[in-house]
Amino acid sequence: MADDQSIGFLFKEDDSGRKFALLSTIIVVGLAFHGYMFFVVKENDIQNKYTIPSFSIDFEETTVQDSDSLLIGNGETEVYSFSRELIGVNSSSMLARITFTITYEETSGQLADPCDEVLVNIPPNGFVADWQNAANKLSDSSDDCETMTLTVFVYPGYNGEAMTEQGQSKEYWETMWTNGTYGSGVLSLEISVDTNQPPGSILPGANDDNEEINVQWEVTLFEANIER
């Protein structure tokens, strides 16, 4: 057999091909089993793998609001602190946006006393929010007792409208819309007052030394419903 140059030498030498037959039989039976598992038992799972899943996402919105007032002296700046704990809602609700409405009127009681100058500002730090959102309004000022409104968008990408997303898993999209990091920290609303003195301020007791500022906040919260 030493001069046997056929490529089947290994398979038939010594045992007339019995081991080759045994190995071939085991492989054929084993691969038939695998084919049955792949095309019959696992058919649905395999097909689902090729189907890109579609998820409908809608949002349930609620709002919470409250107000407070601060007496701020001439030339001073007070900080009004806002945090999630102040609202007292459960952890499943995500913060969408916060709107501050700042109002005041001339309260000195002096004759012909003009409105004071009030500057409001929210520094973009200390609180996790969508600070890059172009719709944010983070500062304003008034010297005619006009109402000022500031808005901070907290959850990136949220606009309240239902959407349909393709691919990924339900868990992925749930994680996407339940990120409690947004809205954590302390949001600071800085309010500065510069009083305008009445015409008779040279008279004793006629000074305008401070102003009462009313701060009303409204928080929009949402919970996402995700269905495949």
Partner: peptide
């Protein structure tokens, strides 16, 4: 399937 068949053969 062909890829998975290769894996199955490896197991065998």
């Amino acid at each position: 399937y062909l890829w998975s068949m290769g894996l199955a053969a490896a197991v065998l």
